[in-house]
C-alpha cells in the first residue's frame, strides 16, 4: 500500500514539474511559426536562426559576461564572509548569518528598485557594472551558505592538528581549510552563476539597451512576436541548467567523499 502511495506521489509530482517543459520543447522543432500543436513537421531552422541572430547572440554574451562577473564578485564576498563567520562566537554567528543571507529574503522587486535608485544616485546606473554589482549581492548569500556548510563539515581537530605542528593560522587556512572547502566554493560559484544568468526582475530595472541580458530578451520576445525561436532559447537554457545540475551533483559527491 505504502508503495502505491509512494509511486503515485512521485509520478504526480514529476508530471507536475516536468510536463509543461516536455510539452513546450517539441515546438522548438516545429516547421510552423506558430506555437501550436499538432506539429506540422520537424526542422532545425529555428535553432539556426537563434544562433545567428545578433539580438539573441548579443543577449547571450551579455548574460554570460554579467554572470561571470557577478560570480567572481559573489565568490569573494560570500567566501570571505563564511570564513570569517566560522571564527566568531556562536551567538554572533547567528546574527551575522542572518545579515549575510538577507538578500535572499527581500523580494527581488524591492531589491531592483533599491539598486536602481541607489546606483542612479551614485551615478553608476545602467549597464554592466551595475548589473554585475547587483547580481553579486544576490549571489553572495548562496556562496556564503554553501561555503559555510562545507566549513562546518570539516573536523575541527584538523585545524588544531595543524596548529600543534607549528602552522600559523594563514598557513593552516591555505593548506588545510581551503583545499577541503573547495567543493563548497565551487558549488557556491555555480549557484551564483545560475542565479545571475536567469535573473530577470532586477535586470529589468538596471539593464540599458546595450546590456540586455538573455532573460530580458526572452521576456521582450514573448511580448513582441511569439515565435518558436523563444522556445529554442528555452530549450538551450534548460540544457545548460541540466549540465550545471550534473556538475553540482558531482561536487556534492566530492564534499561527501573525504569524510569516509
Amino acid at each position: 500500500m505504502s508503495r502505491v502511495i509512494f509511486w503515485s506521489t512521485v509520478t504526480f509530482c514529476t508530471a507536475f514539474l516536468a510536463l509543461p517543459l516536455l510539452l513546450v520543447w517539441p515546438l522548438a522543432f516545429n516547421t510552423s511559426s506558430f506555437l501550436t500543436y499538432p506539429l506540422e513537421g520537424l526542422t532545425l531552422d529555428w535553432f539556426h536562426q537563434v544562433l545567428t541572430q545578433p539580438t539573441w547572440v548579443n543577449a547571450f554574451l551579455n548574460s554570460l559576461k554579467v554572470a561571470v562577473g557577478a560570480m567572481a564578485l559573489a565568490l569573494v564576498i560570500g567566501g570571505l564572509a563564511a570564513t570569517g563567520v566560522i571564527l566568531v562566537p556562536r551567538a554572533l554567528q547567528v546574527v551575522l548569518t542572518g545579515l549575510f543571507v538577507s538578500p535572499l529574503i527581500v523580494p527581488s522587486v524591492v531589491v531592483g528598485v533599491a539598486f536602481a535608485y541607489a546606483f542612479g544616485r551614485a551615478g553608476i546606473g545602467g549597464g554592466y557594472f551595475s548589473l554585475v554589482l547587483a547580481h553579486a549581492v544576490l549571489g553572495a548569500p548562496l556562496v556564503f551558505l554553501s561555503v559555510l556548510t562545507s566549513l562546518r563539515g570539516l573536523d575541527p581537530n584538523l585545524d588544531l592538528a595543524g596548529a600543534s605542528m607549528g602552522a600559523s593560522r594563514s598557513f593552516r587556512f591555505r593548506t588545510v581549510t581551503l583545499p577541503l572547502a573547495l567543493p563548497g566554493f565551487a558549488a557556491g560559484a555555480l549557484f551564483a552563476f545560475i542565479t545571475s544568468f536567469d535573473e530577470v526582475v532586477v535586470a529589468l530595472f538596471l539593464a540599458d539597451p546595450g546590456s540586455t541580458t538573455l532573460p530580458i530578451a526572452l521576456f521582450a520576445g514573448l511580448r513582441d512576436r511569439l515565435q518558436p525561436s523563444i522556445v529554442v532559447v528555452a530549450v538551450l537554457l534548460s540544457l545548460m541548467s541540466l549540465l550545471f545540475l550534473a556538475l553540482l551533483r558531482r561536487l556534492q559527491m566530492r564534499v561527501a567523499a573525504p569524510k569516509s
Binding site: 588544531l160 592538528a161 600543534s164 588545510v176 573525504p258
Partner: peptide, 12 residues
C-alpha cells in the same frame, strides 16, 4: 607533537 583521538589526518 600531538596524536588525536580520531588521528585528524589531512584527508586530501
Amino acid at each position: 607533537g600531538l596524536v588525536f583521538q580520531g588521528y585528524a589526518l589531512f584527508p586530501h
